[in-house]
Design a binder for these strands. Structure first.
Lengths: 245, 245
DNA sequence: CGGTTACTTGAGGCGCGTCAACTTCTGTGG
DNA sequence: CCACAGAAGTTGACGCGCCTCAAGTAACCG
């Protein structure tokens, strides 16, 4: 098994070769998932945390009436889910959106890693904080913006994250997310998502290409979504100050 | 200065008397705020983190058109904001909702604390995770529930948190949050918040009492809000597993 | 008192939901 | 090669939850 070339962790802290080695050593095995498979369920005691090697994952909450609400997406290089092992209990579900491959780090190995490599613990903490910052932005996005702005904003967010992870090829990237998934994330109906997507296409901002997405007009899309990337804490856009200066 | 008897930190990890002492030692001074004062602003580099000693605080995001969207509340015993110092930059604002008093821990003292007392670092990490869990629940709340359910849910959340912090007296507690604030948090108009509040009162679920709030019918309110408290990770409701077993 | 802030009440309108029918597109098996 | 089923997306009609605007009340305060 090979780790993704750009771990999200490394946007938050410098890892030494030794750190990377320890991380790799903590992986017990890999796991392949079909699309739409639950990986961990709400209120379970998680037995591991997972690093996304391929595909796309999401976190979701189950609501009354069998509906689900997606509260976050995860791409290659992200950890999902660190919260569960640390708190001892899941407050949400984690599932695949596409075929996916994951590296499994069992809880005991994770805890050993935290003890032995403080730099990794700091990086993990920062990754959970960055996820929390995204969650806060989603609250404002779902609550404060129109359907059109909301979807434009999300596409900007995902585009920037995917670029930062080195997963875009000349402005386009894999996009396994269906309208129904987007609807569940952005609190819209899939019907309305479809209409908004057409408008974004007609305006020449984005273009869907067979399971991939191309952003044609970054400034236009960012304006449409009132998007500013500061909350993503991407390396490059902001100086990532060391935890202990 | 005296620390609140129940720090939220202590719901997540056992602190030794020595830990508490170090925490107290890291406080440089206290700060008193009028209602509606900004404490830290978006994109600032924070110079300290703050422990709420009195009053209520909120985090909010500024949206286009001067609107603001509240993305979290903080009560006595909570830290606000640990994210900023750790990441080196704020992704949101922190402000007072009522007259408030805060203990100030300057960033350098905070970092020293993290290095010297690993147990405190773990507790801090858990507090940020618990805040993130609340943020995720808010996404689902704002996105997936009606105005009536949404407000009932929020009242349950705040009630439980306030009780867990030991700040309720026979079922009632200080409630400085105006309808306008609730509206900004729950993505509603203050007009509609007012109507929902009346309905909740008429149904005998809650009762406003001069800057205080009393929950008259817990089961009723929880049903109305489809509320389950697991995501709060309150001591007592779930076993808080030690980080390193 | 008059000004200010919080909350209430009512009327009218719009964004987005729901429902339902239709269109692709894909994969499967005869 | 076509028949069929199922999943994803599209289109249109209609309705409702909540918004906006606007006027009014109540409490507090200099």
């Amino acid at each position: 098994m090979v780790l993704p070339s750009r771990l999200r962790l490394e946007q938050f802290a410098q890892l030494s070769p030794q750190d990377r080695q320890s991380l790799l050593g903590a992986v017990s095995h890999t796991l392949e998932l079909e699309p739409d498979c639950d990986l961990i369920s709400q209120e379970e005691r998680p037995t591991a945390c997972y690093l996304v090697l391929e595909g796309m994952m999401c976190r979701y909450k189950s609501l009354q009436g069998g509906r689900r609400h997606i509260v976050g997406f995860h791409i290659v290089g992200d950890f999902c889910d660190l919260n569960g092992p640390v708190m001892g209990r899941m407050d949400h579900n984690v599932a695949s959106l596409s075929p996916a491959k994951l590296a499994v780090i069992p809880t005991p190995a994770l805890f050993r890693l935290l003890e032995q490599r403080p730099q990794i613990e700091h990086a993990f903490w920062k990754e959970t904080i960055a996820d929390a910052a995204i969650a806060r932005e989603w609250i404002a996005n779902v609550g404060g913006r129109s359907a059109y702005e909301r979807i434009a904003h999300l596409l900007c967010e995902m585009g920037r994250r995917i670029e930062a992870a080195g997963l875009a090829q000349d402005g386009a990237f894999d996009w396994p997310i269906r309208h129904q998934d987007l609807a569940e994330a952005m609190a819209l109906s899939s019907v309305h998502v479809s209409q908004v997507f057409q408008r974004l296409s007609n305006e020449g901002l984005v273009k869907g290409e067979e399971g991939r997405l191309r952003i044609l007009d970054w400034p236009g899309l960012e304006a449409a979504g009132q998007f500013r990337s500061h909350y993503l804490f991407l390396a490059g856009t902001a100086v990532a100050e060391p935890l202990v200066p």
